[in-house]
Design a protein around this nucleic acid. Structure first.
Lengths: 209, 209
DNA sequence: TGGTCAACTTGATTCCGGTCAAGGCAAGAA
DNA sequence: TTCTTGCCTTGACCGGAATCAAGTTGACCA
């Protein structure tokens, strides 16, 4: 982006200082722009008529969310809540629409961003419909661990409370706990609080009950 | 769109005459453009490692698909197969990219289209994670039936074979059959082959086992 | 006329994962 | 210290939907 572009966007941006539990927007709210998380964590979630919650996504620092809704002229289909004390930016819709008018490259970037998001949702549907809860947990653990790290211990840190992750994986906290326990018994992982150590990546990857 | 726009796009378009069962693209194929169904039906689906199929979407005449993948630089995450003998158009990627460069309004339309698709996938995830199989079937029957038609019989026609619809709703054909039977017993619908008659829309809408 | 095949239904059984209930444990407050 | 409170684990039990198996029906073809 050019310096003047940055400046123009900065004009339409404001900081949001969030305490844990603060709601950025409710489902059904009118969309006035999109958000970027600077630090902390934010969750996007749905609530069923019966009050059950499903966490769609956990937004980490550096990630944005809500772009898609801007272009749709529809209200938010999800609600957003800070999981921890957080700092986020709110970038005004107008600034972006302006950018699209004037800058095809910017437009392509927005299209690419949206496409990636759609792709993630397809993967979400795929894992919900075609994979067992155990497979979903394993997928989560192996998550962005593409490089071959066989034979080495890999340490990862759970990005949120276990009940939030469980909801994201569409299982209950009880089931999540039990599955981690099983994998632990099988010698594939070692769990200590939020820290998980994968003892054998390749075995975990091909684990089948 | 201006006449010259139409002409330009027509240049990059070719017709695809499809027999039932023909595959338009496989998961993993490189994307060269997007498709519009003129007549017939096309399904977008996933296959699990175990060979189970999940139908993501059934594309009816007039609808397009595959736009999202164009902007992503990734291969298709799903495969597409004709459900019936069909005619489809393939619109070349280059034509669209050109349109984005030159026409901000066109770009906005693409963004809006993508957003709607994303919105649909979110609804898909919502129904998979928060609704029972029976509720999903009812949602499907009430589908695009927003107008208040209480007190009147509403006739709808299943858009595909029941096993395809079942897969789309993420249930087995057996379960689908049983649920339709139950709703029939409850006097809410009447089923005859692919034709379903909803006897009482408002009761069906609020039906709760 | 019967044969074959796909689509669908129905019944019996199984099992994955949810629900309910109880308890552990660490951190902070009184 | 003891009492919360939130988070997590564990066990017992249950139920919704899948699976397995056996028909039924209708369309098309030999």
């Amino acid at each position: 982006m050019s310096p003047e572009e940055v400046e123009r966007i900065a004009q339409g941006t404001r900081e949001l200082h969030l305490a844990r539990g603060d709601v950025l927007f409710q489902r059904g709210d009118h969309c006035t722009g999109f958000h970027v998380v600077i630090h902390g964590k934010v969750k996007l979630a749905l609530i069923s008529p019966q009050g059950l919650e499903k966490v769609l996504e956990i937004i980490d620092p550096g990630q944005s969310f809500g772009e898609a809704v801007m272009f749709m002229g529809k209200p938010y289909p999800v609600y957003a809540q800070a999981l921890t004390d957080s700092l986020a930016l709110h970038i005004n819709k107008n600034v972006i629409v302006g950018g699209i008018e004037s800058d095809p490259a910017f437009c392509r970037k927005m299209l690419a961003g949206l496409s990636i998001r759609l792709h993630r949702m397809i993967q979400n549907v795929e894992s919900l419909s075609l994979r067992s809860s155990e497979q979903r947990v394993i997928d989560y653990l192996l998550h962005d661990l593409e490089e071959i790290k066989n034979g080495q211990d890999v340490h990862i840190s759970l990005s949120a409370n276990k009940n939030v992750i469980a909801s994201n994986l569409n299982i209950t906290p009880e089931t999540f706990s039990r599955i981690l326990h099983n994998l632990s018994d099988a010698g594939l992982i070692h769990v200590e609080g939020k820290d998980v150590c994968i003892k054998d990546v390749s075995k975990l990857r091909t684990y089948d009950k």
